[in-house]
Nucleic acid binder design. Structure first.
Length: 592
RNA sequence: GCACCUGUAGCUUAAUUGGAUAGAGCACCUGACUACGGAUCAGGAGGUUAGGGGUUCGACUCCCUUCAGGUGCACCA
């Protein structure tokens, strides 16, 4: 039972006894005491003044006296303005450390019996992954890990966009200009090879447009009538008709792409329980259209197209089926949402998709609610801001992207240079070195992307490579390695028993207070689907530990009991760093 | 034009969801026991929280308004 809980209960009793009024939990605000004041736990007394009819100070003193008398852990209190600061006994904090923080399951909530799906990554098969995908992948992976820690059963899925006109463009360009080039013959990663032809298509297409304009066509007509775009459109029709030759080309190029993606995902450290493919799902959703028409949620126009009127909800009319009976984007998303639910019977379904699709998901969820789907309330769009460069927006077609593979390679190389400069890898084997550079490079990248609130957009300057000092992944990794080093020197392996409770220093107490807050951050991160909370918490923890480490010696502590206690404290810190970073998909080294 | 999102130190950002003197990191300046690991620690300087109004004991946070930036408003996905 946490001290906050005990205090809350006693405040209810105190208010009832002192002022003869019952108050709800909502009125009780408990927070951590600010560093400049004495105490660890603070109660805000303003909400009670209306009941007590006294000043905030008087109310605070009365409550403080009551709490001190009735709760053994409350040893002292002071009131400053409307804030009642409580000092909690050292014994409580020591008990927290030894029996809570250091226990096996700390930070892992028991199963809540709920199942949640997290869809993320969602690549197109016509181009390699870029920085935007990296943010998406890291967010998806991390949110999945956080939900798991909160007791959910999590199913990670990837919905691959493997069909459509854009896919045909790279296929066509390869057919026309590829000369049979393969990943083997070119030495290119499969996804990069295909991406190369997507760019070539665009270049050739632009040339044709320019030629047509030269010949007197309007720009609009030139775009419509260029031979290449006509051919691509024909190819899409052939694909939909199941043309054998086209299907063979499609599946061959897909195989290349998937091999490339697999490599990138491995490097990023992300994984999926299931892949959905749009080539399988693009025809879904028609039965939902029928259902909606039956229920009167949708209506049909004279031309046969099907619509929904969302004007009462402040939105517009939305087409859900074309006049010719074929699907649009939202049709298949309606169908896919149903499919996911049918496949896994999930309670919640999270879509990790960029904020340019905010409107789309708003509409999608609203339609499903109107259709009366019982699971519609569990749908959530985890929207994140786009990553842009100093030069502006990234465009795959124009080749102005920060490529995911290159970026990771750069990060790892920088980690290597930095580490070698510091001369810290004596006694490492080549494999260990490679693993370490990978850990640090990717740790820096992941922390950089995850420490910012998802919905904020991110500016990424490739020339100013990511820092390795300060508010960074490597700073935290370093702290961890440092603790491991101390523990190794002391031959620490598991929790030490203390002969008696030591008197805590300010910093020790602060550290324990901090450590015991970990589960609260896990819960908050899940509630808001924001790994940034954990990233910033772990950073604060690492910083605090470094301060403690600097000011109070562990191995040279004044007596054995204090030394053992500090070893436990250090071990607990390392453990939380490790757990928290794991939720971000970041590994921490024992030496670096 | 309409809708949604964002705006905090020079830069990158935080603020326990309405609580105390708005915290950090980078960059800049000054320091740290002959270092339990200096990828560290301590200190300095840097803020009208885009501007204006309102709500209340109390506002970066909620409401109104103006400004700036972004995104979306296809029988594309």
């Amino acid at each position: 039972m946490t001290i906050e809980y005990i205090i809350t209960e006693h405040i209810q009793r105190a208010v009832s006894e002192l002022y003869q009024t019952e108050i709800g939990i909502d009125n009780i605000v408990i927070q951590e005491t600010r560093k400049e004041f004495e105490g660890q736990v603070t109660v805000v007394t303003f909400p009670f003044t209306r009941i007590s009819k006294k000043t905030p100070e008087q109310t605070g003193v009365e409550l403080g006296e009551y709490l001190k008398e009735h709760i053994t852990e409350v040893v002292e209190f002071n009131v400053i303005k409307g804030f009642l600061n409580l000092s909690i006994a050292d014994s409580y904090w020591i008990d927290q450390l030894l029996n809570n923080v250091l226990s096996q399951g700390f930070g892992q909530f028991p199963s809540n019996g709920k199942r949640v799906m997290v869809e993320y990554s969602s690549p197109n098969t016509n181009k390699p992954l870029h920085l935007g995908h990296v943010r998406n992948n890291l967010l998806g992976y991390s949110v999945a890990a956080i939900l798991t820690a909160n007791g959910y059963e999590v199913i990670k899925v990837n919905l691959v966009n493997d069909r459509g006109i854009h896919i045909c463009k790279s296929m066509l360009a390869w057919q026309l200009f590829g000369n049979g080039e393969t990943p083997e013959s070119s030495g290119l990663k499969g996804d990069h090879l295909v991406g190369k032809y997507y760019v070539i298509f665009d270049q050739e297409y632009k040339k044709q447009i320019a030629d047509l304009i030269q010949a007197g066509e309007t720009e609009e007509n030139a775009k419509k009538n260029a031979v290449l775009i006509k051919m691509a459109q024909q190819m899409l029709l052939d694909w939909e008709a199941g043309n054998v030759e086209i299907m063979a080309l499609w599946s061959m190029m897909n195989t290349w792409v998937y091999a490339g993606f697999e490599q990138t995902y491995n490097m990023l450290g992300v994984d999926f329980a299931k892949y959905y493919y749009e080539s399988d799902t693009y025809l879904l959703g028609k039965d939902i259209i029928d259902e909606g028409l039956e229920k009167g949620v949708f209506f049909k126009k004279e031309d046969g197209s099907v619509w929904i009127d969302l004007t009462e909800d402040g939105l517009d009319l939305k087409l859900v089926l074309r006049a010719d009976g074929t699907s649009v984007y939202i049709t298949q998303d309606l169908g896919t949402a149903q499919l996911k639910f049918d496949d896994f019977n999930v309670d919640k379904s999270i879509y990790v998709v960029g904020n340019e699709q905010d409107y789309h998901f708003k509409v999608l969820f609203l339609i499903l609610q109107k259709l009366g789907k019982s699971w519609a309330d569990g749908l959530y769009h985890l929207s994140y801001g786009m990553v842009d460069l100093p030069s502006g927006k990234m465009k795959s077609r124009e080749g102005t992207v920060v490529d995911a593979d290159e970026l990771m390679d750069d990060m790892i190389r920088t980690a290597q240079e930095r580490t070698e400069e510091l001369g810290k890898v004596d006694g490492f084997s080549d494999d260990e070195k490679a693993d370490l550079y990978n850990m640090i490079g990717l740790g820096a990248l992941k922390f950089f992307l995850l420490k910012v609130e998802p919905k904020k957009r991110l500016l990424f300057d490739p020339n100013e490579s990511i820092d390795f000092q300060g508010h960074t992944g490597p700073f935290i990794q370093y702290t961890h390695a440092r603790i491991c080093s101390v523990l190794a020197k002391a031959n620490y392996s598991s929790k030490l028993t203390l002969s008696h409770s030591p008197e805590l220093t300010m910093l020790e107490k602060e550290l324990i207070v901090n450590l015991s807050k970990y589960p609260g951050f896990i819960a908050a991160a899940a509630k808001e689907y924001s790994p940034a909370h954990i990233a910033n918490y772990i950073f604060e923890l690492a910083k605090l530990f470094n301060k403690f480490y600097h000011e109070e010696s562990i191995l040279k502590a004044e007596d054995l009991n204090v030394k053992n206690f500090r070893l436990d404290l250090a071990a607990a810190t390392a453990s939380i760093i490790n757990k928290g970073m794991a939720l971000l998909g970041i590994r921490v080294p024992e030496r670096m």
